[in-house]
């Protein structure tokens, strides 16, 4: 049996089970009390049934607002006064705000920029040990245990999305282990999205943007046609940064 056949059989079996349970829990046709079709226990392996992504609407992103950056720093224990010796250019930053002006028209936009979680990530291609890797669900991560700190991924990333840890760190947060001499970048808050379906939360940046009322960052499953992000992507035109490179990032932008 080929891999794709196995996957489709597995999918149909799961769908069948899900549908059966859902049918049992439905009170009337079309109305169900619980939905288990997407439930994923924490110990279940990551699969390619999902592809996590985000749509960032630059029209809604407020210039001068850094709620997403602050939330990311707090969530992942960055910039907590820990990197005291590092110069500004050496400090880790997983997400940053960038203000742009169109050279021809003068049109200005403000946007958050982080790891774009490419389908074909150059950082993963160049990593000699395989420490830089892409999960089945599209999240690009660094395995801190086998990163040798060669920094080739930083040379290869077209978005300059990665940071190198230039000194010893203490006071790390539990969900984000970090280490001197290794490279790191946005994880899309995997520790949040890997939770059981019921406890799943948006990445800290998107959550903060919503709380702030801007609602410029829509996070979700790009493969699920009913997800907010898929619906928004279908409705509006959007672009990937450096689309010419053909990397198919999971992060898309409106208004650039």
């Amino acid at each position: 049996m080929s891999k794709s056949e196995a996957a489709s059989n597995g999918l149909s079996r799961r769908k069948f089970l899900g549908a059966s349970v859902a049918a049992g829990a439905s009170v009337a046709p079309g109305i169900s009390l619980i939905s288990v079709a997407n439930a994923k226990p924490v110990d279940q392996a990551i699969s390619d049934e999902k592809r996590w992504g985000m749509l960032i609407d630059t029209n809604k992103c407020a210039k001068g607002c850094s709620a997403c950056v602050d939330a990311c720093n707090t969530e992942n224990g960055l910039n907590t006064g820990d990197e005291q010796n590092s110069r500004q250019e050496q400090k880790a930053q997983w997400i940053r705000k960038v203000d742009l002006r169109d050279k021809l028209t003068g049109h200005e936009v403000s946007l958050p920029l982080m790891c774009q979680h490419c389908e074909n990530p150059p950082c993963v291609d160049v990593c000699p040990t395989g420490a830089s890797f892409k999960r089945e669900d599209g999240v690009v991560l660094v395995d801190k245990h086998i990163c040798i700190g060669c920094r080739y991924c930083m040379m290869a990333c077209p978005y300059k999305a990665r940071s190198f840890i230039h000194e010893e760190l203490t006071n790390q947060v539990e969900n984000t282990p970090r280490g001197k001499g290794t490279v790191e970048s946005c994880t899309l808050c995997v520790h949040r999205i890997d939770e059981d379906t019921n406890n799943q939360r948006d990445p800290a940046c998107a959550e903060a943007c919503n709380t702030e009322g801007h609602k410029a960052m829509i996070f979700g499953d790009l493969k699920d046609a009913s997800s907010d992000v898929s619906k928004a992507l279908k409705q509006h035109s959007s672009k990937a940064i450096r689309e010419d490179l053909g990397l198919n990032p999971g992060i898309r932008y409106r208004g650039i």
Binding site: S66, V69, Q88, E89, Q93, R96, K97, V98, D99, L100, R101, D102, K103, L104, E108, L113, M155, P158, Y159, K160, I241, R242, D244, I256
Partner: peptide, 26 residues
Amino acid sequence: GQAYPLDIFPGMEIVNSSFADGNSYH
């Protein structure tokens, strides 16, 4: 080769960034 800034946004000028993006060299 590294000092010349990445052309992350072709056709756009970077006005402000907290991560040393921008139009001058590193």
